[in-house]
Simulated scan of single mutants.
Amino acid sequence: MTQVMTGVQGIPTKEFPRMTRIVPMYRVSAENATAWHAVVVASLASDLSDEPRPTSKQVHAQLTAGGLDSRRLFWLATETGGAVVGVAGLRLFTSPGQDHLAELELHVDPDRRRSGVGSQLLATAVLAAEVEQRRSLITAAASGGPGEAFCTARGFRRVLTLDHLLLDVAQADDTEADIEHPGYELVGWTGTVPNELAEAFAAAKNAMNEMPTGDMDYGNQTWTADRVRAMAKVLADRGDLLLTTAALGKGEMAGYTEIVIRAGETRRALQYDTAVVPAHRGRGLGLWVKAAMVCRLRAEHPGIVEIETDNAQDNTHMLAVNRRLGFRFHCRTHEYQLDLPTT
């Protein structure tokens, strides 16, 4: 027997086997987290075979720790007997400037692909986004992977291309860290920003609103001292370690860079934001703070041997900075957007 799904904007109506059920995950039990982790690992192993797999602890933290200015909905695709063959998470942004936006993560066990499981999960997530009155749904797909064809066939359009780069920490060119920049000084902290720097840090983070986002309907974020503290708490609640190095000058924070070491990570750090405030650009501060961060990682976290970052292809300045440090091309992903009907 079959059940007929109602057509959703951009998604053709089709029949799905009744044996697959989409179940909301209201509570993240240990069993559910284990099943979610297994699907994600299998999906990534198939699509991104060279990428490190998230640990079960990292996945559990992702599912249970609250996000910054957002809330999340989760679904499991289960078969008769309770086996989980697909998962989907929908992040609903709630802050002014981004409350039109939803972000989708969707994985299907490779053995159950092309059987309607992904389409069922997507239709469920799209319906939820419409109920929440979102106008844009974004998701990411590996270049050349099955996610590209999946998105294109279901009405998504490609809105941004990201090049992912890797830096060998041992081989990085950190000479810029020793170059003096008259009128500026370096400061650094771990976790939450010190109170005396919180307002200046928030002002500097607002420069991230100028980052290239292609044709994505990403919106804007407004950073305050309370919000930067909240962001640090989100990461701490996941068990992640946040490192920040910043340049101070002319009575304000001129630029900064952030690195995150995920809970349980023993090899790779993730580059988070790097920004230079417009009035201080053209002085090499971005390269300076990033080179200083490399030195800091070597000294404080010698087990971390590589840093991963991503850059929009048209972010030529930051790509040049990263290449100067020694970052090399690793892989490419695309951001896709589905435009939802609005009332």
Rank of each mutant, 00 (worst) to 15 (best):
G219W: 05
R72P: 00
A77C: 11
L340Y: 06
R91T: 08
R71E: 12
G81C: 11
V294K: 03
P302F: 04
D69R: 11
F74R: 13
L90Y: 02
Y272F: 11
R298V: 03
R71I: 00
S56C: 01
L90G: 00
G286L: 06
E210N: 10
A88F: 03
A299Q: 13
L186G: 12
L73M: 07
T224Y: 08
P182S: 07
C151A: 13
C331G: 09
Y256C: 12
A225H: 06
F74E: 09
P54T: 09
L319Q: 14
D99K: 04
K57L: 14
L248I: 15
V260C: 13
L73Y: 11
T244I: 08
Q221P: 00
L106V: 10
S143T: 15
V23T: 12
G66C: 02
W288H: 02
L76N: 14
H37A: 09
T257R: 07
V234S: 11
W223S: 14
L242F: 05
N209A: 15
G303W: 00
R268W: 01
G284Y: 02
L101G: 01
E308K: 07
Y184F: 15
T213I: 14
E199D: 15
L127K: 12
T245C: 09
E258P: 01
P52M: 04
V277N: 05
L90C: 01
T34D: 14
V4R: 12
R281M: 09
L44R: 14
N195H: 09
Y218I: 10
V276Q: 02
G188N: 11
Q337T: 03
L122V: 08
F93D: 08
V187I: 13
A299H: 10
H100L: 05
A142D: 08
H60G: 06
E148C: 13
T6P: 00
A65P: 03
P182V: 04
L122P: 05
T64E: 10
S43M: 01
L137M: 11
T222E: 13
N220Y: 11
R91N: 10
L137K: 04
T257D: 06
R298S: 07
V276A: 02
V305S: 15
V305C: 12
A88W: 03
D163W: 13
H330K: 11
L127N: 11
K290D: 08
H181K: 14
D215F: 06
A320L: 00
A170L: 07
G89F: 00
R134V: 01
A123S: 15
V187N: 01
L76K: 05
G67S: 11
A246D: 06
T316N: 07
Q271Y: 03
L104C: 08
R157A: 12
G86D: 02
G81H: 09
G67H: 10
N322S: 06
R281G: 08
K250L: 07
D178S: 15
G264Q: 10
L325Q: 03
D174P: 01
L165R: 15
H181Q: 02
L92A: 04
G86R: 00
P302N: 06
G249F: 05
V260S: 14
E210K: 12
T2K: 09
